[in-house]
Amino acid sequence: MSFAVIKPGLETSVQDWPGRYGYWNQGFPPSGPMDSWSFRLGNLLVGNPVGAPGLECQYMGPTIRFNEPTIFAVTGADMQPTLDGAPVPLWESVTAQPGQVLALTFAKLGTRAYIAVAGAIEVEPWLGSRATFHKAGIGGMGGYALKAGQTVPTGTPAPQANAGRQVKPEARPAIVTDRRWEIEVVAGPNDDWIDAAGHGRFLSTDWKLSGKSDRTGFRLDGPEWSFTEKAINKAPEHGSLPSNIIDQGYPLGAINLAGQTPIILVNDGPSMGGFINPYTVPQAAFWKLAQSKPGETYRFKSITVDEAQAMARSLSALCTESSIIL
């Protein structure tokens, strides 16, 4: 079973969840879907395991032609999907017949949409994952975004793959319409390099998402930071700038302070480097990053590690059959 790529969209890629874990020390980040909430629910709609390989579409979606009868679902951003020109409902499993064409256009609301197909996408795993890491050319369809003319293989649908399954409205991520996002952060690992005024400014400022952002890092525009004595009077091996530190490991979601520019390290980000990380965005908040566009604003909210873990548990509880209307 398979589908053909007529138009690839803008960097549409094969991803699986949670991605390629255990190889960051060799330079391979987790990758995987940036909005795992929408991704996991899409798989449930078509009867797949929540982490099965599917498509992540960003800004502009693809046009594909199904070669066999298929159950599919589109979740996440509203890219105004149509099947042979007829509107396709989001958050619902739909039947496609051989030869029918699914077309996604620009993201009317949100940024990243997900296409799940019953039986999932069947490509060879690389280091235990099908997730595409574009900058190294690994995973997915030859390691890169989809290309026009490709045929994407899919697996055998499970018995529970049926049309008409829907995600309950209250179980869907609420994509903002006013271009303003509240993003949770946990202090650390290098919060002690920022002084009280710097912390206060960071948490009380609207930060604008820069157009110089991708799946490696989300660059933010805002005011300057101020530092503690520890960051200013330090051993020379730490570097000359207050934000420099001897090379250290970076957590996923770290707000990496490069000089005066904070960059949120997301799914394809580096594993280590010589800048401090005053805050970290928990993975349960990544869906908000995924659905935001350049020019939109973030207001950060400080939470504890326990609260971040509770967010993750709540999200996992939503990504189950309990959120599906049969």
Rank of each mutant, 00 (worst) to 15 (best):
residue 195 D to T: 04
residue 257 L to I: 06
residue 299 R to G: 10
residue 278 P to M: 00
residue 208 K to S: 07
residue 116 A to R: 08
residue 35 D to P: 07
residue 277 N to D: 04
residue 125 P to S: 09
residue 253 G to F: 00
residue 294 P to F: 03
residue 248 Q to S: 12
residue 273 G to S: 00
residue 17 W to P: 00
residue 216 T to V: 15
residue 156 T to M: 11
residue 141 M to K: 03
residue 141 M to T: 01
residue 162 N to R: 15
residue 285 A to N: 09
residue 180 R to D: 10
residue 278 P to I: 01
residue 277 N to A: 08
residue 202 F to C: 09
residue 40 R to W: 08
residue 12 T to E: 10
residue 270 P to I: 04
residue 81 P to Y: 02
residue 126 W to Q: 15
residue 285 A to T: 10
residue 228 T to N: 06
residue 279 Y to G: 03
residue 8 P to G: 08
residue 70 T to E: 01
residue 150 Q to L: 15
residue 248 Q to T: 10
residue 254 A to Q: 00
residue 172 R to W: 03
residue 150 Q to K: 13
residue 151 T to E: 14
residue 243 S to C: 06
residue 129 S to L: 09
residue 172 R to M: 14
residue 32 G to N: 05
residue 142 G to V: 13
residue 148 A to E: 15
residue 281 V to W: 01
residue 209 L to Q: 01
residue 113 A to R: 12
residue 175 I to M: 11
residue 141 M to Q: 03
residue 75 T to S: 15
residue 175 I to L: 14
residue 181 W to P: 01
residue 191 D to R: 12
residue 169 P to D: 13
residue 231 A to E: 04
residue 199 H to E: 10
residue 148 A to K: 14
residue 152 V to F: 02
residue 118 A to V: 08
residue 10 L to T: 09
residue 12 T to F: 03
residue 305 V to A: 11
residue 70 T to Q: 03
residue 241 L to V: 04
residue 268 D to F: 07
residue 67 N to I: 00
residue 121 I to T: 06
residue 289 L to V: 12
residue 325 I to L: 14
residue 225 W to N: 03
residue 319 C to R: 08
residue 133 F to R: 12
residue 275 F to M: 08
residue 134 H to R: 15
residue 184 E to Y: 11
residue 136 A to K: 14
residue 279 Y to L: 10
residue 111 T to D: 00
residue 311 M to I: 03
